[in-house]
């Protein structure tokens, strides 16, 4: 069995090993797909929906998250079409409205081209990206935290809301959390939430070369796999 496949991402033929996800390959080849919930070495969930791409098959394109899409032979992927940019901008807008109090989320909104937020700010403390849950389960095997509830009541919690003995407070869940990176101007109070957008200059290069990773410092904020 061949261990490598050839696929096309934004018109560029790339070679990837069979088990990789499209997002991993794109990052490896310097094609920028914004992402939040993806952490290298941890399984992917497709929770944040930011890494959506168009998968063209038999002349039809299907929008799907690239982190949960395995590479296949002769795949055709488009990461930067108008449709994708529009969808991604809306997802980022919803994210920043939900949890504006984080430099990581603000950076992502900027990177995805959000100019204004049409939704009411909620100032939640969690984006439900599931980084902490997957880290606890997969890296440490502890499973001390997990998703609880359903729909709008879904949250990350301990079993019965009590910290179990086997949680050793390693705090690696906090290290990975995008909400722990406070905005440069300090935490926003309720009622004062806004779109930050001060680092717009970072993206000048990106406007000229839209699909290429320009190693923007914004990536550091949200723990872009490029910087990890």
């Amino acid at each position: 069995m061949q261990n490598y496949v050839t696929l096309t991402i934004d018109g560029a033929p790339v070679r990837a090993s069979r088990a990789d996800s499209v997002l991993d390959v794109a990052i490896e080849y310097g094609i920028c797909i914004p992402h939040l919930c993806h952490v290298p070495t941890i399984s992917d969930l497709g929770a944040c929906r930011l890494c959506i791409v168009e998968h063209v098959q038999n002349g039809r394109s299907k929008v799907t998250t690239s982190c949960t899409l395995r590479v296949q032979e002769d795949m055709v992927i488009r990461t930067n079409t108008d449709k994708i940019r529009k969808l991604r901008r809306n997802i980022a807008e919803l994210l920043v409205a939900e949890a504006p109090n984080s430099r990581a989320v603000q950076d992502i909104a900027l990177r995805c081209g959000v100019k204004q937020v049409r939704y009411p700010f909620r100032n939640k403390t969690c984006t439900l990206c599931g980084r902490c849950v997957r880290l606890c389960a997969e890296l440490w095997g502890a499973r001390a935290i997990g998703f609880v509830g359903r729909g709008k009541d879904r949250r990350v919690d301990f079993p019965f809301g009590v910290r179990p003995d086997f949680c050793k407070e390693c705090n690696s869940c906090i290290d990975l959390c995008p909400m722990t990176i406070t905005p440069c101007d300090g935490p926003m109070k309720t009622g004062e939430e806004r779109l930050c957008g001060k680092c717009e200059g970072q993206l000048l290069m990106n406007e000229n070369f839209p699909d290429f990773c320009v190693w923007c410092a914004l990536g550091e904020g949200f723990g872009c796999a490029r910087h990890a």
Binding site: R143, G146, V148, R150, P159
Partner: peptide, 11 residues
Amino acid sequence: PLIEVYRVASF
């Protein structure tokens, strides 16, 4: 895992 039981029961 207990969290899994709790997750399912609360879902």
